[in-house]
Design a protein around this nucleic acid. Structure first.
Length: 923
RNA sequence: GAGGAAGUGGCGGAAUUGGCAGACGCGCAUGACUUAGGAUCAUGUCUCUUUGAGGUGAGGGUUCGAAUCCCUCCUUCCUCACCA
């Protein structure tokens, strides 16, 4: 028997044993309740990051717990393997994406295995294999047939640096979300998915237990707004200009119109004398990047087209301007401008000397509101004025039909045929084609200019391997003739699918990764779907998490789940609602941030000048090495820019300028040192290679063992929040597992055992079970482990006192190891085996919580005076209200406060869920 | 500008959701064992003017009772952003 816990000696062994014995194979078993636990699949970048461990190992612990509770658990793993980094590696390092990707997968599989997770590797799916992307292509075809996929022309995001278009969701602040390179707007013909058709259904989160923040983000992203459309006509030519507004009640206040620079009509309506100015403006707007156009507080610019429009509600003639604050991608790309009641229009009107006409008289104002009195638009409630027959209608702060004025105007617009009620969305259709090589081919052809799908029996269209990666920026498929030239008349689509399409259905492929007659096996789907718990990062809120919901709804509507629904009925299960959403419960983990770094402690000597020390000598030392009577500045370097240090001198910040020829002494680094070698305090921030604060999980596993790393990650953070890395804290979980090892390997105690102490341990055990159950249920892994540590402390103390006999020790250990198994699977298994118990601990049932065993016999009655605890009295658990009040009032503490006077009230708060009862005495 | 989340010891974080604030752990302190201690064990560790009193970013409010609910600020992080 080893008496020291050496995880490195046992972990590999058990991982191999679990594999061999197929411990984690999950098979359909209709006699057992199922649980599909899913954690977001990694991109095979080549190295598993500590963030992967943080996301996956707690998810694994929870899946293991569900399994021990009697569920048939599916917990699969795979790789989201298409994407740009592979292609970039191909260009810069001359390695084929296929080779690069699979080498990385090999490596990451090993790293994933080292976690000791219960992944069922037989179900692994890799999105870049033909077996997988055959079905991505197949889905694309079905979408095309159903009109969900279409080819269309639109203003799209073009990344010059990546030489491809990007979806709206992949553009942040006008920059590519991955590389931060600027993205330009460009009119292009591309493939789209009609996600907008599902906007309303995607807004319905009723069936989902998802974080509120994700639901809000998706809701905002979809951006549903209610209002009306109305058609204005140009004075000359009568060209219709359709506008969308959420404020039809202000239609009478429109004093001009504004078109987006990209609007079709700009060219046609501009008068000859305004043409030069308008063309110059449109040109300039096209040159400006999205970023420039979005700069906050930018002066509202625009030019007059020379043309006028007729307002349909009052036949008034108003000028038509072109302004880049109107976005072609939102609404109709044209607005009616109501400066009195819209801040942007107001600013524009003031900048270009246009009329501001009040049509809503503010509620709380007696005098009529006038243009001259306004310094900002008024968008509050009030009565409609200057609006003909609508005058007097009450406009509230409510939106859409809930606002009486809006509702009345919409009715009138519809009755008179001047406009109609309209709902608008911010959401755009999903642009899914990419001008890149390393993605799933789009199974389409162009025959004599006409678009036709590749026949099903020719799927998958395989990516050719013999392509040349030359840094032309263009996809190698575009100059690979055998690929794109099918014959003289027929050309193949060379764009590939957005990788988000591949990851929109991977949870289905896990069900049957080898199935070659369908994307997934209907019987498997009938049993396992939907995913019961999905874990991963919140950064996918409006991308993957929205796409996969959309994808699932389309599959349902086009009948892809019909066979699975039939199979469910065959088992007597109701398929209603089962295929509406991909994942029922979603929880996001936070992010592990880089650790805080302390700055060097320095002693700086020199001369003071202008409030700063001009240092001739800077020495890195220890705070206790400050010589008595030291004259200079000493403290931690809080910040450094070039040769200026900000030194934190016990809370006081001192500026130190290091003179060019100053002597710098760093004892740890021999030889001559430079200013740049001085370390300054580093703020907590994201881990990144450039900051040099990344944590390598492989090294941690080698040093502490996988179980310790797992437990550290679960114990030292609020999982849903994340936080800064601090390796010092790893000693906590390490010590806990050491102690468990010691208690277990010491062998049964020779003590006879004290029934009372043994009963107390049993009671604490059951209290612990309750807390662990709640912790795992709520993804509060830290409290679940804290409670186990507490229990271990109590058990160890009782053992040291010689109060636990052999059989109680054995029974307690049996339960302890089961409770430990989800968290530290290797250690629990090793001790279980050493005690000679049957393989495997992971196949044991979870200890059942017994409320009777957990119950205390006596509790502390807390005596509170005016809500403040002042004393406790030991009483029976089931103490009655009256008795508790009596005891409290009679207590020394209460008497002291009452000073002979009667108490005003004495409120009894019964002890619930293990908390002590209280009496609050009001004096 | 809009929306969201959060602010608790020296640190990571608890608090059964309105009922003993600071569980558990790190760190630190004192002691024991030791040639040694960055091992192990024991004890202690919110603050103060300590028979008591105060304390959860600041200020107000509701309540018998507030870290938790409401109002007004301040700070940090995230998301969206000229959205008509």
């Amino acid at each position: 028997m080893n008496h020291i816990y050496q995880p490195q000696k046992i972990e590999k062994k058990w991982q191999a044993r679990w594999d061999e014995s197929q411990l984690y194979r999950s098979r359909v078993d209709w006699s057992k309740p199922k649980h599909y636990a899913l954690t977001m699949l990694p991109y095979p970048s080549g190295d598993l990051h500590i963030g992967h461990w943080f996301a996956m190992t707690p998810s694994d612990a929870r899946a293991r717990w569900m399994r021990m509770k009697g569920y048939n658990v599916l917990f699969p793993m795979g790789f989201d393997a298409f994407g740009l980094p592979a292609e970039q590696a191909a260009i810069s390092r001359n390695i084929h994406p296929w080779k690069w990707t699979f080498a990385n997968i090999e490596r990451m599989r090993e790293q994933l295995r080292s976690m000791g997770a219960m992944f069922d590797w037989e179900r692994e799916a890799i999105s870049c294999t033909p077996e997988y992307y055959k079905w991505s292509e197949w889905f694309f075809k079905r979408f095309y047939e159903q009109g969900v996929a279409y080819r269309g022309s639109a203003l799209v995001n073009w990344s010059e640096s990546l030489q491809t278009v990007l979806a709206n969701e992949q553009v942040i602040d006008g920059k590519d979300e991955r590389t931060g390179q600027p993205v330009a707007q460009k009119m292009m013909e591309q493939w789209f998915f009609r996600i907008t058709k599902y906007a309303d259904e995607l807004l319905d989160f009723a069936p989902l237990d998802w974080p509120e923040s994700i639901k809000i983000m998706q809701t905002n992203w979809i951006g549903r707004s209610e209002g009306a459309r109305a058609t204005f006509r140009t004075e000359i030519g009568g060209h219709p200009i359709e506008i969308y507004t959420t404020r039809p009640d202000t239609l009478w206040g429109a004093t001009f119109m504004a078109l987006a620079p990209e609007h079709d009509l700009v060219n046609r309506i501009t008068t000859d004398e305004r043409r030069a100015a308008v063309e110059a403006y449109v040109e300039a707007a096209a040159q400006a990047t999205e970023v420039e156009r979005m700069v906050e507080d930018r002066e509202k610019t625009g030019v007059f087209t020379g043309a006028y429009a007729i307002n349909p509600v009052n036949d008034e003639r108003i000028p038509i301007w072109v302004a880049d604050y109107v976005m072609i991608t939102y609404g109709t790309g044209a607005i009616m401008a109501v400066p009195a009641h819209d801040q942007r229009d107001f600013e524009f009107a003031r900048a270009h000397d246009l009329e501001v006409r009040v049509v809503i008289q503010p509620e709380d104002m007696d005098e009529p509101l006038t243009e001259a009195a306004m310094s900002a638009a008024y968008d509050g409630p009030g009565a409609m004025v200057n609006s003909d027959a609508m005058d007097g209608s009450q406009s509230t702060s409510a939106k859409g039909r809930k606002n009486p004025a809006i509702s009345r105007v919409i009715d009138w617009l519809e009755a008179t045929g001047k406009g109609q009620e309209s709902v608008n969305y911010r959401l755009r259709d999903w642009l899914i084609s990419r001008q890149r090589y390393w993605g799933s081919p789009i199974p389409m052809l162009r025959a004599d200019g006409e678009i036709v799908p590749v026949p099903d029996d020719e799927l998958p269209v395989e990516l050719p391997e013999d392509v040349d990666f030359v840094p032309t920026g263009r996809s190698p498929l575009t100059y690979h003739e055998p690929f794109f030239k099918v014959d003289e008349r027929v050309r193949r689509e060379t764009d590939t699918l957005d990788t988000f399409m591949c990851s929109s259905w991977y949870q289905l492929r896990y069900l049957s990764p080898d199935c070659d007659s369908a994307p997934f096996d209907a019987d498997e789907a009938a049993y396992w779907l939907p995913v019961d718990v999905y874990t991963g990062g919140a950064e996918h809120a409006v991308m993957h998490l929205l796409y996969t919901r959309f994808f699932t709804k389309v599959l349902r509507d086009i009948g892809v789940f019909d066979d699975a629904a039939e199979a469910m009925r065959g088992q007597g299960r109701d398929p209603a609602g089962v295929f509406d959403e991909p994942m029922t419960v979603l929880r996001n983990q936070g992010q592990v941030l880089g650790g805080e770094r302390q700055g060097d402690f320095v002693l700086c000597s020199g001369t003071m000048a202008g409030g700063r020390l001009l240092a001739e000598r800077v020495e890195v030392a220890d705070w206790n090495q400050v010589p008595a009577g030291f004259e200079g500045v000493f403290g931690e370097i809080a910040h450094r820019t070039e040769n200026i240090l900000r030194v934190d001198m016990a809370g006081l910040t001192q500026l130190v300028e290091i003179l060019p020829d100053a002597e710098i002494v760093i004892p740890d680094i021999p030889g001559e040192n430079s200013v740049n070698q001085l370390r300054h305090h580093l703020e907590i921030q994201r881990m990144s290679k450039s900051k040099g604060n990344v944590v390598n999980p492989d090294e941690l596993v080698a040093k502490y063992g996988a179980d310790v790393v797992r437990c550290y990650l679960m114990f030292n953070f609020d999982w849903q929040k994340g936080g800064p890395w601090n390796e010092n804290n790893i000693k906590g979980p390490q010590g806990w597992l050491d102690d468990i090892w010691e208690i277990a390997t010491a062998g049964p105690p020779r003590a006879p055992g004290d029934p009372e102490a043994e009963r107390d341990i049993e009671r604490k055990l059951h209290q612990t079970i309750a807390v662990i159950n709640r912790g795992l249920e709520d993804f509060s892994f830290n409290t679940a482990i804290a409670e186990q540590m507490k229990f271990k402390n109590a058990l160890r103390a009782a053992l040291r006192e010689g109060k636990i006999g052999a059989s109680a020790w054995r029974e307690t250990l049996d339960a302890t190891l089961r409770l430990l198994a989800p968290f530290a699977p290797h250690l629990a298994e090793e001790i279980w085996a050493r005690l000679g118990w049957d393989y495997s601990v992971h196949q044991q049932p979870w200890p059942e919580y017994d409320a009777d065993k957990a119950r205390e016999e006596t509790v502390d009655l807390v005596v509170m005076i005016n809500g403040r605890p002042r004393a406790t009295i030991a009483v029976a658990v089931d103490i009655a209200r009256e008795r508790a009040q009596e005891l409290a009032l009679a207590s020394e503490a209460a008497q002291r406060y009452l000073a002979g006077k009667p108490a005003k009230r004495a409120i009894f708060i019964p002890g619930r869920n293990g908390s002590d009862p209280k009496v609050n005495v009001v004096v």
